[in-house]
Design a protein around this nucleic acid. Structure first.
Lengths: 100, 100
DNA sequence: AAATCATATCTATATTTTTCGATATGTCGA
DNA sequence: TCGACATATCGAAAAATATAGATATGATTT
């Protein structure tokens, strides 16, 4: 976990929102078509709809978040689901606490 | 306290280091000339020396950190001392905890 | 009052980030 | 196998950030 890299992700309102929404997928997104749970998170399209930004922008966001370790992608057929990586999020907290 | 603004400050290694150093001024900086304590933090010149960056860059950094509420400046004669603003740092932690 | 010192601000350039449309890739259904 | 669909990647333009030198401001000292 790299503090600077994670902080870069968090220095954008939309990306912070995505992480927030993914905390409670049921409350923030409609149910998926192919599966009836959110165990693997939420598909890109739903996240895009909620932000109103372009598909490529959201894909880029999610990629940077994945690079930073904050989210984990899972492919299901033609969809990619993203969920939070709680371990890295926790690591960010604790590193900040001790380092800062 | 604005999460995005604080995160922008933290998305730079040097600025993270400054916050880290200011946690233990006695251990990281030489004693000041005019006063014999670090109650108001550390003067700009010492911080600059430790980073190796230009005076104007460090001044800009400290200004952005102050805007974000992370540090508090105190003027003593011709020197400006900067110290951590623990309240805002704590607020960042707790907001992360609840929002993220 | 002038010179000096510490810091802040201004101006400019280089680099990075943002954001999108276009295109590519991979998957499913007809 | 050919379209249609979901997502990823590419290429480019605009905006933001990084960084420094030059200059301004404010305080001290002579």
């Amino acid at each position: 976990m790299n503090v600077v890299e994670v902080s870069k992700v968090l220095s954008n309102e939309t990306r912070v929102n995505i992480l927030k929404w993914l905390k409670e997928p049921e409350a923030n997104f409609p149910p998926h078509q192919d599966i009836d749970h959110f165990d693997d998170g939420v598909c890109v399209g739903y996240i895009q709809d909620k932000t109103g930004l372009s598909q490529s922008t959201i894909s880029t966001y999610l990629n940077s978040m994945q690079q930073a370790g904050l989210v984990i992608p899972t492919r299901h057929g033609k969809w990619t689901y993203y969920r939070r990586n709680e371990e890295v999020i926790e690591a960010y907290y604790s590193t900040l606490k001790e380092v800062l």
